[in-house]
Design a protein around this nucleic acid. Structure first.
Length: 473
DNA sequence: ATGTGC
């Protein structure tokens, strides 16, 4: 195990503390530049003991600098509270410790008012995925996540579920032709769609946002990679729903999952960096850097985040319009919801900023969509307005294993069998999106019966995702 | 999550 990675514990063992110096040391170790693990450890110890001697070292200079300025750095640091606030956890027995630890740190932020962990939670960057955090007048870019405005959209058509059998090939072709998947990918110049969101004033007045407009246009109506999808399936309303006005029955439906593409990712990256420069937090909380909404930077992020949210919504609208028109179908009902976003909401009688990073808004009577996986049920839900959960629910089943773990351990044959058994046609996707890589959606749903009521179910039948490695046209 | 990093 000569080249096994050095981790935080190795550094603690040779005298490092859990602070920014450790972060820099781990970053340097990632590059490793031809040193063995032993050589690295010996040098790390030497730098710690005599940082002055390494101020001109090409590799260890950044570490020496941080070590020499660590006291000053800590003076500028905003202190966390001694005691973390309590937070509600739903389905705690199925949530990994890493996610709880991250939530615990978030509950120590001076701006935190309340928090909750949804049953699909797992470890993320800063705030866990499935984490909900209410703050006082502050917004955390990494509390929203990189894919700002990532959301679900559902169209239920006036076509019977049998349409999936009678027009299977048509539906497959419509899916292929109407969508674009893969990182960096979008539409060709002559295929672009116009949309009012592109006329947003920020695309003119704000230099940084303006520089993103052309790509935003190219990618409008595209889906991206990872766990994003566009799929046809069977929507089943077991009983009549008064509010939606849909009669009991099985219908053809379109379900989409995607976000704000390059536009949102670039905005997220820009303002996270800015937040980290402005808001210096202790090492364990560094990714939770926040922007005060009374500052120009905070206001700017808020506007940019909302634009990314509108853009994500527009992307879904383009996809749904194209497909509905291609089918010549009428819409029975449409539902959509963000699950990576921050909102101004009332909580216990006060206005707070609610961050949902992979969590579905579930205020009283708010409709939401909680997908399972490519071959398991998804759910149309109605929020119950549970204040303990900060009016939220899970945003899906949640990953059971990481992508790398899934690629290493799951069998393509098993996936094929599962898809055949469920009658699912899959276009694209890697094994890392296999249902076996996700928690059981029914377990997750039963952990949140206090948070949402199930209105209808969705069974995926023709699923389109990005190819392996998310390279595709 | 994203076509790219201190």
């Amino acid at each position: 195990m000569e080249n096994q990675r050095i981790n935080g514990n190795d550094l603690l063992a040779i005298g490092y503390q859990e602070n920014h110096a450790m972060g820099v040391a781990l970053k340097i170790n990632k590059k490793r530049l031809g040193f063995t693990r032993e050589e690295m450890l010996v040098t790390f110890k030497a730098v710690l003991e005599q940082p002055e001697s390494y101020l001109h070292d090409p590799v260890f200079k950044p570490l020496a600098e941080v070590l020499l300025s660590i006291d000053t750095l800590e003076d500028e640091t905003i202190a966390l509270k001694e005691e973390a606030l309590n937070y509600a956890v739903y389905g705690a027995e199925h949530i990994e410790d890493g996610a709880k630890k991250q939530m615990h740190v978030a509950m120590k932020l001076p701006v935190t008012v309340a928090g909750a962990l949804m049953p699909d939670a797992h470890q993320g960057y800063g705030l866990p995925i499935g984490g909900v955090l209410a703050t006082n007048n502050a917004v955390i870019p990494y509390g929203v996540g990189v894919d700002i405005g990532c959301r679900m959209a559902l169209s239920v058509f006036d076509l019977p579920a049998e349409y999936l059998n009678t027009h299977h090939d048509t539906l497959k072709n419509v899916l292929k032709h109407s969508t674009r998947f893969g990182a960096g990918h979008g539409f060709l110049r002559h295929e672009r769609t116009d949309h009012a969101v592109l006329d947003h004033s920020l695309f003119e007045t704000h230099d940084f946002i303006r520089s993103l407009k052309d790509k935003a246009w190219t990618q409008l109506g595209s889906s991206g990679g990872g766990n994003h999808f566009v799929e046809f399936g069977i929507m089943e309303f077991a009983s009549a729903d008064a509010t939606l006005g849909v009669a009991p029955g099985k219908y053809l439906a379109l379900l989409t999952h995607s976000g704000s593409r390059g536009l949102g990712a670039t905005i997220a990256g820009h303002y996270t960096k800015l937040a980290k420069e402005i808001c210096k937090l202790p090492y364990e909380a560094q990714h939770l850097a926040y922007l005060d909404l009374h500052t120009a930077e905070g206001q700017e992020y808020w506007l940019a985040m909302n634009l990314a949210g509108d853009y994500a919504s527009a992307c879904h609208e383009v996809i749904h319009d194209k497909i509905r028109k291609a089918l010549g179908a009428e819409l029975l009902t449409k539902v959509e919801n963000h699950h990576n976003f921050a909102w101004k909401e009332q909580f216990e009688g006060e206005e707070v900023i609610v961050h949902r990073k992979g969590a579905t808004p579930a205020g009283k009577d708010t409709m939401g969509i909680i997908p399972g996986s490519m071959a398991t049920l998804g759910f149309l839900v109605r929020g119950k307005g549970e204040e303990t959960a900060i009016n939220s629910a899970s945003h899906g089943a949640g990953r059971l294993m990481s992508r790398t773990q899934a690629i290493k351990t799951l069998s393509a044959t098993d996936l094929k069998t599962l898809l055949e058994d469920q009658g699912v046609t899959l276009l694209g996707a890697g094994i890392d999106e296999a249902p076996m890589a996700y928690k059981d959606i029914h377990t997750v749903m039963s952990a949140q019966t206090d948070l949402v009521d199930i209105v209808a179910t969705f069974s995926p039948k023709i699923v389109r995702m990005a190819d392996d490695g998310s390279r595709e046209d």
